[in-house]
Amino acid sequence: MKCIKCRGKAQIKLPRHNARFCADHFREFFYGQVEKAIKKEKMFSFNDKILVAVSGGKDSLVLWEVLQRLGYHADGLYIDLGISDYSLRSKKLCEDFAYKRSLNLHLLSLPDMLGMGIKGISRKTRRPPCSSCGLIKRYLFNRFSLEFSYQVLATGHNLDDEAATLLGNTMHWQTGYLSRQSPVMPSNHLSMVKKVKPLYRLTEKEAASFAFLNEIDYILEECPMATGASSLIYKNALNYLEQNSPGTKQQFYWGYLKKGKEYFSHAENGIDLISCAKCHQPTVVETCAFCQLLEKIGLEKITLSSNSSTI
């Protein structure tokens, strides 16, 4: 099998693009897709200070690698969720990644800030672990970005993540979520940072292939709390369709952005964001969900200070 660019030996076959690439031309393709996403969706410029939410997984580390190679000012933020050995290993991978490339990595720790990890929080608040985790991460990434003067928060969501979310939201007719799903979430409140997903044009397999070819070490195991997550079921279903009809995931998600999203715009109307009475972060009720969570675990408020591993 030959690379369609140089006729050298191809390592990657991309049926959805009817393309085959050698390692070098696959890298070129990958960088090109990220650049296209950034420009097409007006995500950020070279003057912006970008915070990358890193987890130790392939997508976030690949995103950080690509952004710094393209010349953007991108720092990382890792949140230690206190999930025993899994958190220790994923944190070490982020630290090693940053150290090798002389990048600035900020560290926050739930056990340090809240006195417990996700498991304890989940038990105390009677919320499922993934729900607590999502709420806490969204809050901390947003608040940290603002307090440390980042203009944009970038996450490693890829095409598979977005297509699986779209499938889940469609199956349950979550019209509010459908109206908001986008590669760019603009700031619509004084205390809300702009959020972007520069990998939305690339599949999970392409991100994993890029990580392998660029020798990016990432955590291979799944989060122990995510076992049986519905997103994994949706991803497998979509990959079954993709195998039989290449391009399905891309047509589903990109097609939704182009032709479907407008039909759900009304679902967003009428929701006014206000400032939380306690922390001033955006919320739709008087006290935001994060401050309510703090109350349940017996805390009044938290202060953010980066335990930065700046090189």
């Binding site: 099998m1 191809a10 390692a23 392998f212 991803k235 990959n239 195998q243």
Partner: peptide, 17 residues
Amino acid sequence: NPESVMVIRGNELLSTE
């Protein structure tokens, strides 16, 4: 499913072909 996995031989990726 080839969409869900990477196949590795040494330091190279293998395609389905």
